[in-house]
Design a protein around this nucleic acid. Structure first.
Length: 642
RNA sequence: GCCCACGUAGCUCAGUAGGCAGAGCGUGUCCUUGGUAAGGACAAGGUCACCGGUUCGAUUCCGGUCGUGGGCUCCA
């Protein structure tokens, strides 16, 4: 019998008889691996363990350790869930059910939404299916056969998917069956339902078919699955811990901000601590912009609606607010670009002036739909660290590199190490010539490469007016929120007839870049709070030092120390409560204040302070000067890493 | 905006099968003046989100509005 040569992930090779299944290969490598095996990877294809290997290939056994293995595992769990749902609700129509980052979901068309009680029943039914250890079997049929199968079940969703597969020239349609449940599915799957050890259905939600709100709303059940009970429990604990870092919870506890129901959804009120935090962040941002050759500008919140007609926002029905002043319609700005363009256009610009970089902490209002509002992460009124760069086509790549580096520096300085970068390309409804688009995309891509950024292409995800780079930050629960963005704009310069005089004495159209680094300050603060769990580094902490007098006798000394620290521009407060030292320490710890200075009779006599740090606890007594030497450094605004 | 769940004291939450509303924390006063994460006593705090309906009577049941949470979509 013919032998085939397999190259394993460690680079070693092994020979097996042609026709050997992936599972048999795993068994030959080792019994433990075979037991943990969920699927296999042959060259670049992820396949069932029952797949026979017919020719030489790169070969890897996939376990739960690998992302692909997790995906297979959870996708199989989704099938089991769909089976359980159909057993309990025979009229339900399964649509799609993929694995996602931390679990899986399945969308069903049902007459009545699922309740929490239903989830428990579905879980119980899933347990039965798992106990029965039913084999997952792959079956390949023609599109016609597949269509007949799902038409018989009156499942138009699956029929629609089969039609699309056919359009994409798929030769055969694969089905996966376990027990009496058969689903349209590319696969692969784990060998049998018994492989699923620990699972939990976490929530029900509405979701539109294909994510389009014009389509019917389906009922989505979310769940997750792990090969060990312990891993599932750890996952659930992680979620609990993440909830402790939720910026909405910390915002209340640390007295940072409020959103008042009676005053309007999505509108933020900063309390003294939050306003201080915000001020430090924006002061820092302004300084960093000035360092990088940006010029500060400032534009009004109201512009005549005629401006929004020129910009095109009015015609596009951009979700903005309008008001009337003496019979004139005004729009409340949802973005700052028109204002910056007016300033640019107020004078004749030469190529020698470019690039021009206008920067503004611009407060904008957008009518975000009620269902999407979320703490500070999605609001209706927010302030952007917004800039517009006007440059020549030749300057474009350098300008983009400058912004990417700026964004990297700022994210690093604020402690964000995890983010996702997307380069969005031309959508179907785009305006502008192919050349312009290609120039923009090339410039963005070249800049990303020059900055050694890992990025993914988001095809057709650009704005209609130009391609863009989006950088997304993660919140406590791992959800992504758009942060820095750099957008090329081929539309506005046309609409506002912008120009500069070139070296040739002719008028030219400048290239325009929209960019935000922190993005929405509100959103940035929300992400910042979650990222550091409210333990702001000393330079950002709204209160840097709290002085804790042990008895009322020591209050005047505490005040004296506070005065000296304020002279040094430290943010200090004195705890005057008639409470025990323990209680005062607890209070300061709960407020996550970086330094506590305990002052009692002993300190008063020696002229010292007893330092306690949030991170390191009791550091013992020292002179005020000694504390200050250290605190001055920590409290100083950093120079962005670069 | 759409689907589901929810809205009781400043916060976290009990409770009322329709009959005068509860706890802990926090706050105030008093006592206590203490040495590195909660000292004690007493007190004040609620049109049970808002508006309407059913009812002898609604915080509780029904409808609407506003808001919140988890999703969908969109976006900084």
């Amino acid at each position: 019998m013919a032998q085939v040569k397999l190259t394993l992930p460690d680079g070693s090779t092994m020979e097996v008889a042609a026709g050997t299944t992936a599972l048999q290969v795993a068994e030959q490598i080792g019994p433990r691996l075979a037991k943990a095996a969920l699927a296999a990877k042959v060259n670049t294809d992820v396949v069932d363990l029952s797949t026979a290997i017919e020719r030489d290939a790169d070969f890897a056994v996939l376990t739960f350790e690998s992302p692909e293995g997790q995906e297979v595992y959870r996708h199989s769990a989704a099938h089991i869930m769909a089976d359980a749902v159909l057993r309990l609700f025979p009229e339900a129509k399964p649509t799609i059910g993929p694995a996602i980052a931390e679990g899986f979901y399945y969308d069903f068309d049902v007459h009545k939404p699922f309740t929490d009680d239903d989830l428990a029943r579905i879980e119980a039914e899933m347990a039965k299916i798992i106990d029965a250890d039913l084999r997952f079997e792959r079956q390949e049929v023609s599109a016609a056969e597949a269509r007949a199968l799902f038409e018989a079940r009156d499942n138009s969703y699956k029929v629609e998917m089969i039609d699309e597969l056919e359009e994409h020239d798929e030769q055969t349609i694969s089905l996966y069956r376990h027990g009496d449940f058969t689903d349209l599915c590319r696969g692969p799957h784990v060998p049998s339902t018994g492989k699923i050890v620990a699972f939990k259905l976490t929530s029900v939600a509405g979701a539109y078919w294909r994510g389009d709100e014009r389509n019917p709303m389906l009922q989505r059940i979310y769940g997750t699955a792990y090969p060990e009970r312990k891993l599932l429990e750890e996952h659930l604990e992680r979620i609990e811990e993440a909830k402790q870092r939720d910026h909405r919870k910390l915002g209340r506890e640390l007295k940072l901000f409020s959103i008042f129901e009676e005053a309007g959804a999505g509108l933020v009120y900063y309390h003294p601590n939050g306003a201080m935090l915000r001020q430090i962040v924006t002061d820092f941002t302004i300084r960093e912009h000035l360092k990088r050759g940006y010029q500060l500008v400032r534009t009004p919140h109201l512009l005549k609606s005629t401006i929004w007609e020129i910009s095109g926002h009015a015609q596009q029905n951009y979700p903005m607010y309008y008001t009337r002043i003496e019979e004139q319609s005004y729009g409340i700005k949802p973005m700052n670009c028109p204002g910056h363009i007016l300033i640019y256009n107020s004078d004749t610009r030469s190529y020698r002036d470019l690039p021009i970089r206008y920067f503004e902490l611009g407060t904008v209002y957008r009518h975000e739909r009620s269902g999407v509002l979320h703490g500070l992460l999605r609001v209706r009124g927010f302030t952007q660290d917004d800039a517009h760069i006007f440059c020549t086509p030749e300057q474009l790549t350098d300008e983009i590199v400058g912004v990417i580096e700026f964004a990297q520096d700022m994210l690093t300085t604020f402690g964000f190490n995890e983010y996702k970068v997307l380069l969005a390309t031309r959508p179907d409804n785009a305006m502008g010539s192919d050349e312009m688009w290609q120039h923009g995309i090339d410039a963005l891509g070249a800049a990303l490469d020059q900055c050694n950024m890992d990025y993914q292409i988001a095809p057709k995800d650009g704005a209609f007016y130009g391609p863009k780079i989006d950088i997304a930050l993660k919140d406590a629960l791992g959800r992504l929120w758009d942060g820095p963005t750099i957008q090329c704009d081929f539309n506005m310069p046309e609409r506002f007839d912008m120009s500069y005089v070139g070296a040739d004495g002719q008028e030219h159209r400048p290239v325009m870049l929209h960019r935000v680094v922190l993005a929405g300050i509100e959103r940035f603060l929300g992400a910042l709070i979650e990222n550091c769990a409210g333990n702001f580094p000393t330079w950002l902490a709204p209160v840097q030092v709290r002085i804790l007098p042990i008895t009322d006798r020591n209050v005047p000394y505490a005040d004296e120390i506070a005065e000296q620290l304020r002279e040094e521009d430290l943010r200090v407060e004195v705890d005057r409560e008639s409470a025990t030292l323990q209680a005062k320490i607890r209070g300061a710890e709960l407020m996550k204040i970086p330094y506590m200075l305990v002052v009692g009779d002993r300190e008063e006599q020696s002229g010292q302070v007893a330092v306690r740090s949030r991170e390191e606890g009791d550091l013992g007594p020292r002179s005020l000067e000694e504390f200050l030497e250290h605190a001055r450094v920590e409290a100083a605004m950093p120079h962005a890493a670069r």
